[in-house]
């Protein structure tokens, strides 16, 4: 039986959690200190680190687990971790005065829309699978 939550996905979620906590801390601190350029710099670094980590863990997962999901599990995990950390950051009052909860809710809303689209794409591509494995990956 193939697992949906794999070791690679857990590794990705754990690293993403660490990155997001660091990013949130850095963002709120830099906004409070009004260091606008550095805010952009850490945002770019944060995005790049997510991309690289997702690419590496996703690639390894594809080799080890052959479960076809069109990258949806990684996208969903990113949304969940980012959303939970960000909401928690606000609930605990750790945000700066320059941040509002709308800055979390609007991206989450847009992200949810993309997740629906991504899941629809996955359902369409799933027709090219047999037992959850992409037809071109079964016989080597």
């Amino acid at each position: 039986m193939m697992k949906i939550v794999t070791r690679n996905l857990i590794t990705y979620a754990t690293l993403l959690l660490a990155y997001t906590l660091l990013f949130r801390f850095g963002l709120s601190s830099l906004l409070t200190a009004e260091k606008w350029i550095w805010v952009k710099v850490i945002a770019v670094i944060y995005g790049a680190m997510i991309f690289v980590t997702a690419w590496m863990t996703g690639r390894r997962d594809g080799k080890e687990n052959f479960l076809f999901d069109a990258g949806f599990r990684w996208n969903l995990t990113t949304g969940i971790v980012w959303g939970l950390v960000s909401e928690g950051w606000f609930l605990l009052g750790l945000h700066s005065n320059y941040e509002s909860i709308r800055m979390i809710h609007i991206p989450l809303l847009i992200w949810s829309g993309f997740l629906v689209l991504h899941f629809s794409l996955f359902l369409i591509l799933k027709r090219r699978t047999i037992g959850g494995v992409h037809k071109t990956d079964i016989f080597e």
Partner: peptide, 9 residues
């Protein structure tokens, strides 16, 4: 890897 896949299928 191939045998795991064949086993799954």
């Amino acid at each position: 890897r191939t045998l795991r896949k064949f086993y799954h299928l």
